[in-house]
Every structure is written in structure tokens, then in C-alpha cells.
């Protein structure tokens, strides 16, 4: 059982670090924000595993939810400002 728990811890940590790297290195603003929201949800998972349900609740509701929504709005504004007179739907979603 200890081995299984250790495997779970290791997988969780590696996924969290991978998600952080992906969020920090994505150049397109909206994809970075979506990855950051996913990072916050995984962080809440870690804190649930470390017996801190209050922190997991706060992180999921305001850390990922509220600040993610604020950043999404900011990313949309930045995109509209960068190309106001070109196509109304700029297709910068090429991976």
C-alpha cells in the first residue's frame, strides 16, 4: 500500500510539473491561461491528498476559477487589441 501511495505521489508531482512547464512556455495567451486553470485544479488535487480540504476548496473556487476567469477576459482583450481591423476571428490557434 505504501508503494502504491508513493507511485501516486510521484505521478501527481510529475503531472503538476509538466503542466507548469506547459503553461509557462506557451506563447499564445489563451492557451496559457487554460493550462494555468488546469494547473490550479491539479494543485487542489495535491492539497486534497495532503489532508487540507479547506485549501483545496479555496484554490479550486478562487485560485483556479476566479483568477482564471479574470485572466481569460484579459487574454481576450489583448487579442482583440492586437488585431482590431484584421479578420474578426484571428486564427492564431496553430499549434
Amino acid at each position: 500500500m505504501t508503494t502504491l501511495l508513493a507511485a501516486f505521489d510521484l505521478l501527481l508531482s510529475l503531472t503538476l510539473l509538466g503542466l507548469a512547464v506547459a503553461a509557462l512556455t506557451s506563447a499564445e495567451p489563451r492557451r496559457g491561461v487554460i493550462l494555468f486553470i488546469a494547473f490550479g485544479l491539479l494543485l487542489a488535487l495535491v492539497w486534497a491528498r495532503l489532508r487540507a480540504p479547506d485549501l483545496a476548496l479555496a484554490e479550486a473556487a478562487i485560485g483556479a476559477g476566479l483568477s482564471g476567469a479574470l485572466m481569460l477576459a484579459a487574454a481576450r482583450r489583448a487579442r482583440r487589441r492586437r488585431s482590431p481591423e484584421t479578420a474578426p476571428r484571428p486564427s492564431e490557434e496553430q499549434p
Binding site: 485544479l41 487542489a44 486534497a48 480540504p53 483545496a56 476548496l57 479550486a60 473556487a61
Partner: peptide, 8 residues
């Protein structure tokens, strides 16, 4: 933790 899942 069930409440946390509800928020999720």
C-alpha cells in the same frame, strides 16, 4: 473531500 468534489 466530498464537498471539494462538489465544488469541482
Amino acid at each position: 473531500l466530498i464537498d471539494v468534489a462538489l465544488i469541482f
